[in-house]
Design a protein around this nucleic acid. Structure first.
Lengths: 354, 354
DNA sequence: ATCATAATCCGAAGCGCTTTGGAAGTAAAC
DNA sequence: GTTTACTTCCAAAGCGCTTCGGATTATGAT
């Protein structure tokens, strides 16, 4: 029923070797036989068994991504786009992408299993942390990987990242140029390196402008809509609320803007807001959002695919790096500090949220 | 460096066969040698090469799920939970779950590749449609699979599903019992079988109560927050708007409730709303939502894992089925038809959304 | 002492492919 | 006419594991 190399070779009166090499496009088989083999293969519907191929070559032609399937990761459909682009870029090179679900508490164990299971040729590490045990583990095991987000590490490794510090800094400088001095920050836990970097950019901008940092204006919040909502409420409850705000991730950004609306406030007029990454397509907003934008997520995925291929091709790890430059996309949520602008009253109109 | 069966066997003075069978737990190896082998394996850190095992056995110990990584699928973190439960249930049996991203337009091609690539032992089909080519393909190829959602098919197959028709019917009956007669429905495209079933349940309830179906009250809308928002606006714009509403999926449910708020209306008071599946943890709502609830998604995943194992164990396909019964979870978004209730004015207060 | 039975163990043949290290034949160079 | 250099093909050895079909030894019944 199922034809394999042997039967194919036999029916062609050739050796397995030759058939294999013909199909593999090696140069030591004549053009004519190559054609003959190709046709026969086509006609007999021969499909090489990938399992056998894997055993023989040691490659799986699959790259993996261990992904936390929780609300945080799942809520942000940017990841969906990154994954699409990645998958696209890989399959153009006959490789597959396999996503391995994991619960956060079993993370390292899963990485270990995947590596030892020879399940994939390389891994993509996402949600990189400032001090990331996964990266240490993979380095220790000598397993090829690409990290989405970079970290300081004694040993260099390949990464894909954006200049988060520059992005945040540019955003805050823009707000400062508008005359704002009380500038708030809602940021993800600083264990994430993107959060740490954006946080640093925020501080750098303030410092450069000679504005004193006020701890109360900086609130840490998990990456989710709800948390962003809460964080914004916290800021609004301040005696001296900020007149401008940077939110360091899109999910919290949605929540924050929503909270503004709920409390009867308007972005720009009552509070200048810049959201890192912009807000995902969600409920329609009646205004566009000023954002620190990065190349489309899909584009990122494609770049990462190229990087992965480079790694597998043996390119030195410290050359496989990509640092994207974010740009500010001007929307309607920020603007000059109005002379009349006053801190909103505490707990403005505590209205239903819906 | 890396020990394999051969070296392990040699170092134990046993044959490969015996070592293999000892590790495999076969009965034809004595307890003492089994122990000896186990210890040696442990001590020499022997890990069987899964690639070799796969080639030899033909099994991959991995089950796959082709998943569309677009906003619709990604926006609903219920899927994250299902996947968690599934993965959990499988790994308890030493199997892995691999998620294969796909763009909708390449769906069948991807399925084909996965099956032919012997990548996985079985597949899970999600977002089942009323007439689903994927199921036909898999049946044709004779590849084991479990479908999340059932469809009429000439050939029986294993599925996991809920009694969507009963759930929708119960919800609508509840609204009717409250005195409502103008009951709207926001539903996903009827190509999805869950939507078709819930739609049928809606009609059945109206029919049983002798209420005439009004086409204008039924609006189809893609599964997303934004679409739900739009659909609700469409209903509110009606000259004779409904006094009650069933939304057949949680994502649209969020959007619909949000639209209500935006337009200055309150659920229950102005419009009774029941949302199928409830609304995901999102921005906090100031009320609880009446919902048709199903067992936790994680529980579902676990059940599916069991089903998959049953399939692979060779259980007849028409016995591997699971039909869950949804229950109504009473919240604060629905209630009796107030005597005073009037259709909201057209285009009530077209206020900013935020 | 003899023979069936059961308990242990092992040789060898795959699984289906890749790849090494020639062999055979042909063409060009001396 | 011999040597050198290609070109084209192939036999055979893996890759590391499983598994079939005995072989060997011990056990107990006769």
């Amino acid at each position: 029923m199922k034809v394999n190399l042997k039967t194919l070779a036999a029916s062609l009166g050739l050796s397995q070797t030759t058939v294999s090499r013909a199909l593999g496009g090696y140069s030591d088989v004549s053009e004519t036989t190559r054609k003959r083999v190709a046709e026969a293969a086509q006609q007999m519907d021969y499909k090489p068994d990938p399992l056998a191929r894997r055993l023989a070559t040691g490659r799986t032609d699959t790259i993996g991504m261990v992904f936390p399937f929780n609300a945080t990761a799942f809520g942000d459909n940017r990841w969906g786009e990154v994954i699409s682009g990645l998958s696209e870029g890989l399959s153009a090179n006959d490789m597959d992408l396999s996503i391995i679900p994991v619960r956060p508490e079993k993370e390292l164990e899963t990485y270990r299993r995947v590596v030892e299971g020879r399940r994939v040729d390389a891994l993509i590490v996402a949600w990189t942390r400032v001090d990331d045990p996964r990266i240490r583990l993979l380095q220790e095991l000598g397993f090829p990987f690409l990290s989405y987000g970079r970290t300081d590490s004694p040993v260099p490794y390949p990464w894909f990242d954006f200049d988060n510090e520059a992005g945040a800094r540019a955003a805050v400088e823009r707000l400062i140029a508008f005359g704002h001095r009380r500038i708030g920050l809602i940021h993800a836990p600083l264990a994430y390196n993107f959060a740490a970097q954006r946080h640093a950019g925020y501080l750098a901008a303030l410092c450069a402008a000679g504005i004193e940092v006020e701890d109360g204006l900086i609130v840490e919040s998990p990456v989710s809509r709800t948390s962003g909502y809460r964080a914004m409420e916290q800021l609004l409850a301040l005696d001296a609320a900020p007149t401008a705000l940077l939110v360091d991730n899109n999910l919290s950004g949605i929540g924050a803007l929503r909270a503004l609306g709920t409390h009867g406030l308007q972005p720009r007029r009552d509070l200048s807001v810049i959201v890192y990454d912009g807000v995902p397509t969600d409920i329609p907003l009646p205004y566009t959002v000023t954002a620190v934008q990065q190349p489309t997520a899909e584009q990122s995925g494609r770049t990462m695919a190229r990087q992965i291929l480079a790694i597998l091709a043996g390119k030195p790890v410290d050359e496989v790096r990509h640092l994207g430059q974010p740009v500010i996309e001007v929307g309607e949520t920020d603007g000059p500090l109005a002379a009349a602008a006053v801190a909103p009253r505490r707990r403005t109109r505590k209205k239903a949220v819906s």
